[in-house]
């Protein structure tokens, strides 16, 4: 049976955690968004392990100081904006130490396939998304990986909603061209 808390809104759960330090509420938020946040960062950065740590760090901060997130504002927007800022800080620190990033490309091996054609298609999708420029990739991932609304993406990216739609559709077109180049030439 679906519990009351599981069906509660993100902001309601956050409010509950702020007021009563309910670990259950926190755990629901964590299970809803940890993987989602990790995927967002992994697509943006091309890394895996480091992104899990950044995502975990965001939740640790929220766990220790729940007041850093205003429950009257959209939780998802706060979460993804915080993750993005933290990733940028991380990147800046790395540049000064001149460390190299390890790309997600190794994850291609993890793609499960039952026949060669399907595997090829999945690999081409993976490479196509990875090759998008950062601005297009970000809106695409936030929409189709993290299921954010246009308004929420606009707030995370600090862009007008119209620009988000435009970038999103351009990203879709670029992906289609990269995944089905022959078809497009024939068309």
């Amino acid at each position: 049976m679906k519990s009351f808390k599981t069906s509660n809104s993100d902001e309601g759960l956050l409010r509950d955690y702020i007021n009563s330090k309910s670990r259950q509420s926190f755990d629901i938020l964590y299970s809803r968004y940890f993987r989602s946040l990790w995927k967002y960062l992994a697509w943006l950065s091309g890394e895996t392990d480091c992104c899990a740590d950044i995502a975990q760090n965001i939740f640790l901060k929220l766990y220790e100081r729940p007041g850093i997130c205003d429950p009257n504002r959209n939780f998802k927007v706060w979460l993804f904006s915080s993750a993005k800022n933290q990733w940028k800080n991380e990147l800046r620190n790395r540049n000064t130490r001149q460390q190299h990033l390890v790309y997600l490309a190794s994850s291609e091996q993890q793609i499960v396939s039952d026949n060669d054609g399907r595997q090829e298609r999945l690999e081409s999708i993976f490479k196509a998304v990875e090759s998008l420029n950062e601005t297009h990739k970000e809106v695409f991932v936030l929409k189709y990986s993290n299921n954010l609304s246009i308004q929420e993406i606009a707030e995370v990216c600090q862009l007008p909603p119209g620009t988000v739609k435009s970038r999103l559709f351009n990203a879709l077109k670029q992906l289609k061209n990269k995944v089905n180049p022959i078809k497009d030439i024939q068309a």
């Binding site: 670990r23 964590y30 940890f34 993987r35 990790w38 995927k39 992994a42 895996t48 392990d49 899990a52 740590d53 995502a55 975990q56 760090n57 939740f59 640790l60 766990y63 994850s107 993890q110 793609i111 499960v112 298609r121 999945l122 999708i125 993976f126 998304v129 189709y144 990986s145 879709l172 992906l175 289609k176 995944v179 089905n180 078809k183």
Partner: peptide
């Protein structure tokens, strides 16, 4: 075409294993 591409994108994503973070959440 767009719909099929997005379906494949979901499949790609579902194949990823989320790595465990190095620091666990503190005990309550």
């Amino acid at each position: 075409e767009y719909a099929a591409m997005l379906l494949s994108f979901r499949e790609v994503e579902n194949s990823f294993d989320t790595p465990a973070p190095s620091q666990a959440l503190p005990e309550h």
